[in-house]
Design a protein around this nucleic acid. Structure first.
Length: 462
RNA sequence: UCCUACUUAGCUCAGUUGGUUAGAGCAUCUGACUGUUAAUCAGAGGGUCGCUGGUUCAAGUCCAGCAGUGGGAGCCA
């Protein structure tokens, strides 16, 4: 008999037919006459209740059905006699695929702390919480591709191993096949990477942006969506050493077009979650964050506040609010400043633009004032910076001057500079941290709980 | 990396000014119960008190170092 998924079954109203479901047992309870098994196959947050007439089954088989075990059930789909579910399966045949020793299986019927579940990341997808988060994560990944595809963007695969050390987005992980204990050396004692696999020093990418720009200078609109690596010793609920990032890059877009796209993109994804992940969001709203759904709707329905950095500084200085770090023009905003703007002053997402050039990357387009660049950061409640982007400097001379000024090796970027030499065009783009998006959409508060197997300093288990 | 808190049963936590044999709830096991919803009720088993060292007649409790985890900060997405 063909297997039917629980998600499909719970929507079915055709009582009286025999069905086959397969899944993992969440709980079993009952008495010597009747047993109730809550079965889940991950297709939906809800379980299907399997009713077992105890005397019709072998006692030894029923004993094997414990929390965590995996079974296949054939039975009749009937209207439930009990409260709490509309339909259930009256079991006729049960096959046990895999037992789960009750004394050692770590997941209980009772709730667990997220900290404990992180220690058993191989089993936590079997919980309601992680089932919900992982389904939402999937829906967001799909929504991202759908959004860009519908808009005519080309999905560009940028390299994961990079020889460019000039991306400037943080510490990198080295990629090498050299013997760590005994690497070939130059006469001055440094490691000779000419003998390494690629004939030069290579690292894992910290951003696909520079290559993304190369694609945009031919295909007009491109986006990347792939893993990104930062070797920073960051121990916070918002950072991972390995995370996924979405980086659209658009020719002929100026900074305002970039902001429009970023806002529309975020609103599309949040709407997509509200429409397609309603059950999972309701669960998370109930269990973790009572204002989650309300907050998601608010973000979709209200325009983001847009203002230049300089104006934000004025607001902060005149706020009368006591900050731990003083506010002054020319310094980067601290978390507390961003939080004040988003959560206290505007009470909605904020897009800040035109930051001082000295605190931003070399590739950002320089404004006429000689002091600021066309950067934009999208700040969200609870999680802070969710998007960072800019219009790019398309003028060869200005870009080269900035590279020299910041002591970046221009010879490493010859290919990047050539796009400004041959058919340059105004263009812009941004980066969205995928896990930060999931954090916001799911209402979870630690980034380690929105990726299946988190990589953080001192942790690469599983 | 810095600041701070925490680490006691499978899980979540109590544990008094240092003082006999370290407790509870849940989970597990056994039994009871004719349809349960984190079922309920009764009983039982379950501990190197994170690790190392120190103070003391005596350390889960006080001190030091180390490790891990949470929260905050920095770096950023």
């Amino acid at each position: 008999m063909e297997r039917i998924k629980v998600s499909k079954l719970l929507k079915s109203v055709e009582f009286g037919m025999d069905v086959n479901v397969k899944g993992w047992v969440r709980t079993k309870r009952g008495n010597k006459n009747v047993a109730f098994i809550a079965l889940n196959d991950g297709s939906i947050i809800h379980n299907i209740q399997v009713v077992v007439d105890v005397e019709k089954f072998d006692e030894e088989t029923l004993k094997l059905i414990t929390t965590g075990s995996c079974i296949s059930v054939i039975g009749e789909l009937v209207e439930s006699m009990g409260q709490g579910q509309s339909c259930e399966i009256q079991a006729k045949e049960i096959q046990v695929y895999g037992t789960a020793d009750a004394e050692t299986y770590p997941l209980q019927k009772k709730g667990h702390t997220l900290e404990f579940l992180r220690e058993i990341a191989h089993l936590r997808p079997r919980t309601n919480t992680f089932g919900a988060v992982l389904r939402i994560r999937h829906a967001m990944a799909y929504g991202i591709h759908k959004y860009f595809n519908d808009k005519g963007f080309v999905y560009l695969h940028t390299p994961i191993i990079t020889g460019s050390d000039a991306e400037g987005a943080g510490a990198m992980f080295r990629v090498t096949t050299l013997d760590a204990a005994n690497p070939p050396k130059n006469t001055d004692g440094t490691v000779n990477f000419v003998e390494d696999f690629f004939g030069k020093s290579t690292n894992l990418t910290v951003s696909g942006q520079l290559e993304g720009e190369l694609g945009a200078m031919a295909l007009s609109e491109v986006y990347t969506f792939g893993p990104t690596f930062r070797a920073e010793n960051s121990n916070t609920p918002r950072h991972l050493a390995e995370f996924w990032m979405i980086e659209p890059e658009m020719a002929f877009f100026e900074i305002t077009d970039n902001m429009d796209l970023a806002e529309d993109f975020l609103k599309y994804l949040i709407s997509y979650a509200l429409e397609n992940c309603a059950d999972d969001l309701e669960f998370l709203n109930k269990m973790y964050d009572n204002e989650l759904i309300e907050r998601l709707k608010f973000v979709v329905e209200n325009p983001f506040e847009r203002l230049p950095y300089t104006k934000a500084i004025d607001i902060l200085v005149n706020s009368g609010h006591k900050f731990e770090f003083p506010v002054s023009w020319g310094t980067d905003l601290q978390s507390e400043h961003e939080r004040y703007l988003v959560e206290n002053h505007f009470k909605k997402p904020v897009i800040l633009t035109d930051y001082p050039r000295d605190i931003k990357a070399f590739y950002m387009k320089q404004n006429e004032d000689g002091k600021t660049v066309r950067a934009m950061d999208v700040l969200f409640p609870k999680i802070g910076e969710i998007i960072g982007g800019s219009q790019r400097e398309e003028d060869y001379d200005k870009l080269l001057a900035r590279i020299k000024e910041m002591n970046i090796h221009e010879e490493d970027l010859w290919w990047y500079l050539e796009t400004r030499k041959f058919g340059t065009a105004p263009h812009a783009g941004f980066g969205l941290g995928f896990e930060r998006l999931i954090l916001f959409v799911s209402g979870m508060s630690n980034i380690r709980d929105v990726i299946p197997f988190p990589r953080t300093p001192k942790n690469a288990e599983f």
